[in-house]
Design a protein around this nucleic acid. Structure first.
Lengths: 115, 115
DNA sequence: CTGGATCCTTAAGGATACTG
DNA sequence: CAGTATCCTTAAGGATCCAG
């Protein structure tokens, strides 16, 4: 009869992961460590500079990734996951695992339909 | 140097949780068990019938919630989390916990700025 | 090399009215 | 009671061009 829990903080975590490229960026940086902007871009076929910049800025805003600018010409900027940001890793892994299983689950379901 | 992992399934999990009301609906149903449409609606101030229907349909589509229609007048429809859907619970809880902590993290950060 | 500025398209979300 | 149908607004994402 009661209302939904007011203290639901799931969306706080969700909002940080949501963004077409954020999980990919995070997993990549977690795996590879520190990367330059151009390396990130090259590693993600399909992403535009604008989007990469935007997603990185948002992650930086939340203290998940760190941005280090080397004042030189041409510019050099490196990105890495912060110590704090690493606390997201278990969640990302859990979601990856769940997602993998879910793909199979849907496949099985689809197979049943056609039999 | 390599590309980003092609086998990233994080978004599969993400896409199921994304939706303004989905986490709330899921947590509520996980907590309360089976609920009628009207009970869900009443428990979520701010949601419209259209949105509630839509979010529930999408969750049903992914086999996360079950919809049972009682053929009577007036209509009665009950929703509950499927056995399979419960596999999302650990992830939701982890996100809730992380989100709670993140709120504090941001608060601390904001306090530092103003000092 | 990094990334800002502009313009455009699409999809999510919401307000409201209607129905078996 | 439990929806559908319609119309509208906004934000995310993307293409493209410019700049220190």
């Amino acid at each position: 009869m009661g209302k939904v829990p007011e203290e639901c903080r799931v969306e706080d975590a969700l909002s940080i992961l949501v963004g077409k490229w954020k999980p990919i960026i995070l997993l990549y940086l977690l795996q590879e460590g520190t990367k330059r902007f151009s390396e990130l871009k090259r590693s993600m076929p399909g992403i535009t500079q604008k989007m990469l910049t935007k997603q990185l800025r948002e992650l930086e805003e939340e203290d998940i990734v760190e941005r280090v600018v080397y004042p030189q010409v041409p510019p050099k900027v490196e990105y890495s996951v912060t110590e704090y940001g690493r606390s997201l890793e278990p969640i990302l892994e859990a979601m990856h695992e769940w997602g993998t299983n879910h793909t199979q689950h849907k496949q099985r379901k689809a197979d049943q339909q056609s039999s």
